[in-house]
Design a protein around this nucleic acid. Structure first.
Length: 695
DNA sequence: ACGTGGCCTG
DNA sequence: CAGGCCACGT
C-alpha cells in the first residue's frame, strides 16, 4: 500500500518481464500490459494520464480494471483502491456505511493527500455532481454509485475494445488512442465526465489534425500524380481513365472521412487503411510509370548512342561508300544515309537522358526533313566515280569491248525480295511507322555480359535484335510470352510498350544480321536489370551460321582478301575467337580457291577455243564464268552482283589467259603473280553488311 | 612462335 | 567446306 509501489509496477511493464516474479502475481494486468506495451508507455507520457495519475489518488478505481487498465493504472488501481474508496465515501457519500473510511485510509495515502489535491478533488467532485445531474444522487446512495460504476464499467469495456481496435492504427494514432484510454481508469465515477469531455475535445483535435495530415498527404500524392500526368500526358486516354478512377475513389474516401467524425473512431483504422491503399496504388502507379519512362529513355539513349558509334566507327576508319554503292543505292538507302548523318547530329545535340518519346518523334521527323536536303547531295557525290582503292591497273584497255546488260552506271544492286535494312532503317521504321510494324522475325542477339572478348574494342556494341511492338496493354495487362524464349515486357506492367524478340531460332539463321543495334552496356545498371527482368532473350552467336556463310559469300563479291579486322567489323554479331576468325578466313580462302579454279578453267577453255586476243575475252552476266561464280556465291540469285566484281573477274581471267598463253603455268608458283594483282582489286564492302543482311 | 595463305584431300 | 600440311612474312 505504499505509494512507491505504483511507480514500481508502473515500470514493471518492461522490467518485470526480465526479472520480476510479480508478473505472475499481477497476471491479469501484467499480461495485458505486455500486449499493450505501447499503450502503457503512451499513458505514462500523456499529459492526460499524468493528470489522471494525480487524480486517481482521490478516486476510487474500478474493480473491473483488468479490462482496460494500463500497467500504471492497474497498479494504481490495486494500490489505491482502499484510499480511493474511502476518500470518495468520505466526501461524496458522507452518509454511507463506510463513512469512517477516511480513517481506514492508509497513513501513506492520507499523507499523500496534499492540500492542492484535496482542493482539486473537491473541485472535480463538485463538477461531477453537476454533470451527473442527478439531484437524487445522494439520496440514492449506493444504488447510484453502483449505477455509476456499472456505467463506468461499460465505458471501460468499450474503451478497452476501442483500445484493442486502435492498436492496429499507425503509431501517431495510437498515441491519441492511448491518451484516451489511459485516462479511462480514472473515470471510475461520473466526475470523469469533465476530463472525458476535455479529452474528447483533445481527441477530436488530434483526429482532426490527423485528418488534415492525411488529407495533406493525399493531396500531395494527387499533386505529384497529376504533375506527372501533365508531364507525360502523351497517353491521356488510358491514364485519364486511371486518374478518374483514382480521383473517384479518393474523393469518396475523403468525403466519408469528413462525414461522421463522432462515429468514426472505430472506423478510422479502416479509413486509414483504405487511404493507404489508395496511396499504395498511387505509388505503384508512379513506379510503373517511372519504369516505363526509364525504359523508354534508356532505349532511346542507347539507340542514339549506337548510331553515334556506328558513324564514329565509320568516320574513324575513313569509310565511305563505294561508287557502286552510291550508284546502286536505292532511294531508300540514300534517305537512310542522310538520316544517319542527321541522327548523328541530332543525337549529339540531344541530351540522351532527356530523349523521350516526344524527342523520338521529333527526331524521326528531322530524319525525313533532313533526308530530303541531303539526298541530292548524296546523289551528286554518288555520281562521281571515285575509286579510292588502288586504281585498276592500266589494263583498262582490256575492259569493255563487249556490250553489257547493265550500263557502267549500274542499276541499283539490291536484294530481290528485300532491301537490306540499315540500323537506321529499322530505327526509322520504328519511329516513323510505329511499333505496330514489324521487320519480320528478328533474331535475338543478346548482349553479352562478358566484355573480355577481343572484339569488344572494335565492336563496342552488341546487337539486340528485337522486334518492337507497341501494344495497348494496360497496367496489369500481361502479354502472352512468346514461344521459344520470346521476349515480352510483361511482368512489368509497362503500358504501351511491348518488345518481342526473335521468335524462332530458324529466323536467326535466316537473318542474323538485320538487327537493331543497341549498346546494352550503355544502359544503366537499372536498365540492364530491367532488360533482364523483361526476360529479353539474348543470344550472341557463338559460332558461324549458314547465314554468316551466305553473307561471307556475298561479301566476296566485294573483297577477295578481307582482313580479320574487316571480318570482325562485318560480323558484329559473332563472338570472335581464334577458331571463328580462322574459320572465316578459311571460308574466304576456299572462295578464292574456287574463284581461281574457275578462272584458270575458263582461261584454258578460251585458249582451247582459239581465242587469240585477250581483248576478246570479257565477263558479262551472261557468260558461263559469271553464272558459275554466281551459282557458287549467290546461289539463290537474290543478290545483285556489283559490276565491279564483273570487272575484277574479267581482269582475273585475262591474267590467267596471259599467264597460260605465256606458258608461265610451268612455274609451280605461277599463280602467285596473279594473286598479287587480284588482291589489289578489292573494294570496300558496303556498310549494309556490317549490321544487316538480306532477309 | 604466330598468323596467314595456298594446296591437297576427303 | 573443313582439315591437314606447308611455306612465307613478321
Amino acid at each position: 500500500m505504499n505509494l512507491s509501489l505504483p511507480d514500481q509496477s508502473m515500470h514493471s511493464s518492461s522490467e518485470g518481464c526480465i526479472e520480476d516474479d510479480k508478473a505472475d502475481v499481477m497476471l491479469p494486468c501484467f499480461h495485458r500490459n505486455m500486449y499493450d506495451e505501447p499503450l502503457a508507455s503512451y499513458s505514462n507520457g500523456s499529459i492526460i494520464s499524468q493528470l489522471l495519475r494525480k487524480t486517481i489518488h482521490s478516486k476510487r478505481a474500478l474493480d473491473e480494471s483488468p479490462f482496460y487498465l494500463s500497467s500504471s493504472a492497474a497498479a494504481d488501481c490495486g494500490q489505491e483502491d482502499q484510499s480511493s474508496v474511502s476518500s470518495k465515501d468520505s466526501t461524496v457519500e458522507a452518509a454511507s456505511p463506510s463513512g469512517h473510511a477516511p480513517t481506514g485510509a492508509s497513513p501513506e495515502g492520507e499523507h499523500a493527500m496534499s492540500d492542492h489535491l484535496q482542493a482539486k478533488r473537491a473541485r472535480v467532485e463538485n463538477i461531477i455532481r453537476v454533470m451527473v445531474g442527478s439531484p437524487n444522487s445522494r439520496q440514492h446512495g449506493e444504488s447510484e454509485r453502483s449505477e455509476n460504476e456499472a456505467r463506468d464499467t461499460r465505458e471501460a469495456r468499450e474503451a478497452y475494445r476501442e483500445n484493442k481496435r486502435k492498436q492496429r492504427l499507425p503509431q501517431h494514432q495510437e498515441h491519441s488512442a492511448a491518451a484516451q484510454v489511459s485516462r479511462k481508469p480514472g473515470s471510475s465515477s461520473s466526475d470523469n465526465c469533465n476530463t472525458k469531455d476535455e479529452e474528447c475535445h483533445k481527441l477530436k483535435e488530434q483526429l482532426h489534425s490527423m485528418q488534415r495530415l492525411l488529407r495533406h498527404l493525399q493531396e500531395k500524392f494527387l499533386q505529384v500524380y497529376h504533375q506527372e500526368e501533365a508531364e507525360y500526358d502523351r497517353d491521356e486516354t488510358e491514364v485519364g481513365v486511371e486518374r478518374d478512377i483514382l480521383g473517384e475513389s479518393t474523393e469518396s474516401h475523403y468525403i466519408s472521412a469528413e462525414d461522421d467524425f463522432e462515429r468514426k473512431n472505430n472506423r478510422v483504422a479502416a479509413e486509414c487503411k483504405d487511404r493507404i491503399k489508395v496511396a499504395d496504388y498511387l505509388v505503384q502507379q508512379r513506379e510503373s510509370q517511372n519504369l516505363q519512362e526509364t525504359l523508354k529513355q534508356e532505349l532511346t539513349r542507347a539507340v542514339s548512342d549506337c548510331v553515334d558509334r556506328v558513324f564514329k566507327n565509320v568516320s574513324s576508319k575513313g569509310f565511305d561508300l563505294s561508287p557502286q554503292q552510291r550508284i546502286c543505292s536505292s532511294p531508300e538507302m540514300q534517305i537512310s544515309t542522310g538520316a544517319e548523318r542527321k541522327s548523328q547530329q541530332a543525337s549529339s545535340a540531344l541530351d540522351h537522358s532527356q530523349a523521350e518519346g516526344v524527342g523520338i518523334k521529333s527526331r524521326s521527323l528531322e530524319y525525313y526533313e533532313s533526308s530530303e536536303a541531303h539526298s541530292p547531295q548524296d546523289q551528286t557525290e554518288a555520281l562521281s566515280l571515285v575509286v579510292r582503292k588502288p586504281a585498276v591497273p592500266p589494263m583498262s584497255s582490256v575492259t569493255p569491248t563487249v556490250k553489257r546488260p547493265y550500263p557502267v552506271h549500274q542499276a541499283p544492286f539490291q536484294f530481290s525480295y528485300s532491301t537490306p535494312l540499315h540500323d537506321s532503317h529499322i530505327l526509322e521504321h520504328l519511329l516513323k511507322y510505329g511499333p505496330h510494324s514489324n521487320f519480320g522475325g528478328l533474331p535475338c542477339l543478346p548482349p553479352s555480359m562478358d566484355r573480355t572478348s577481343p572484339d569488344s574494342v572494335d565492336l563496342p556494341w552488341e546487337t539486340i535484335a528485337m522486334r518492337s511492338k507497341v501494344t495497348s496493354s494496360h497496367l496489369g495487362h500481361h502479354a502472352r510470352p512468346s514461344s521459344l524464349g520470346g521476349v515480352t515486357v510483361d511482368n512489368l506492367c509497362l503500358p504501351h510498350v511491348k518488345i518481342e524478340c526473335g521468335e524462332l531460332q530458324g529466323m536467326a539463321d535466316r537473318n542474323p544480321y538485320m538487327s537493331l543495334n543497341i549498346s546494352f552496356h550503355s544502359l544503366t545498371a537499372d536498365s540492364q536489370l530491367l532488360f533482364f527482368s523483361l526476360n529479353i532473350n539474348v543470344n550472341i552467336q557463338e559460332g558461324l551460321t549458314p547465314s554468316h556463310l551466305k553473307k561471307a559469300k556475298l561479301m566476296f563479291f566485294y573483297t577477295r582478301y578481307p582482313s580479320s579486322n574487316v571480318l570482325k567489323t562485318f560480323f558484329p554479331d559473332v563472338k570472335f575467337n581464334r577458331c571463328i576468325t580462322s574459320q572465316l578466313i578459311k571460308w574466304f580462302s576456299n572462295f578464292r580457291e574456287f574463284y581461281y579454279i574457275q578462272m584458270e578453267k575458263f582461261a584454258r577453255q578460251a585458249i582451247v577455243d582459239g581465242v587469240t586476243d585477250v581483248k576478246d575475252i570479257s565477263v558479262s552476266r551472261d557468260s558461263e564464268l559469271f553464272r558459275a561464280l554466281n551459282m557458287h556465291y549467290n546461289k539463290a540469285n537474290d543478290f545483285h552482283v556489283p559490276d565491279r566484281f564483273l570487272e575484277v573477274a574479267e581482269i582475273t581471267l585475262h591474267e590467267f589467259y596471259n599467264a597460260i598463253s605465256a606458258t608461265k603455268d610451268s612455274d609451280p608458283s605461277w599463280k602467285k603473280a596473279i594473286y598479287k594483282v587480284i588482291c589489289k582489286l578489292d573494294s570496300d564492302v558496303p556498310e549494309e553488311f556490317k549490321t544487316s543482311s538480306y532477309l
